[in-house]
Amino acid sequence: MSGAKEIRTKIKSIQNTQKITKAMEMVAASKMRRAQERMNQARPYAEKMANVMAHLAQANLEYKHSYTESRDPKRVGFIVVSSDRGLCGGLNINLFRQVLQSMSEWRDKGVEIDVTIIGRKGLGFFKRVGVNIVSEATQLGDKPQLADLIGAMKVMMDAFSEGRIDRLFLAHNGFVTTMTQEPRVDQLLPVSAAEPDERLEQHWDYLYEPDAREVVDALMMRYVESLIYRGVVENISCEMAARMVAMKSASDNAGNLIDELQLVYNKARQAAITQEISEIVGGAAAV
């Protein structure tokens, strides 16, 4: 009966694992809902910002900001948004693959690469790969604060305005549905010109306080930051969705394993009983 006992302990341990994965699935589901809410809350700011940018494109601006300036790329920057924790399926790996592909395209053209990492998983990965990491931000938690990102972002944005990098890309996961997340690499800098707002009349300018240059600087900076922040928030939604799906399939797998083991266990038990009976019968016949 030794085989049956072993199988029983195995079933027990799989059941325990299943309990954990089920719990993680439910936690991820509720966190995903909250992350999606945050994604929606971040939307008005991005929309208002885009509006102001459109107005600004319409206004007769005498000052051209460095973020709009397009240069021949000699060195490019990537901001890679990843999750802090694992157990979320292929989410990070899919993104990294996309990033590496785009990186190798640049490298083939003889362009050098700087990287800013957001999230622990990305840090671990790109450290191993051996790219030049110029700044990082990790341990943002489920509720990322813009304040925690400022430093990491500024390193890259300064590098752009000082001409050390000529392009800046943001790599993050885009939330399509709960089941699908799409790795994306978008260009942040130079910013593409905003569409002028048609409803406003031509030929006017803002009053700027203190002056156009400083205000536009502040605006541009916040615009790019809001794009990055949005990417981070969206990535968290993706992380939760991916974790939920991964944990659900893990729970299902555990269920299948338990069913199979249960069958094996039953057979082993029956065999043991049959053997015992035949031994008794055999013994009785011998007497």
Partner: peptide, 17 residues
């Protein structure tokens, strides 16, 4: 302050190495 945050992020990246 932003400058300090930037330096901090940079330092952390160096520290990671």
């Amino acid at each position: 302050l932003d400058e300090a945050a930037a330096l901090e992020a940079q330092r952390r990246a160096e520290q990671a190495m």
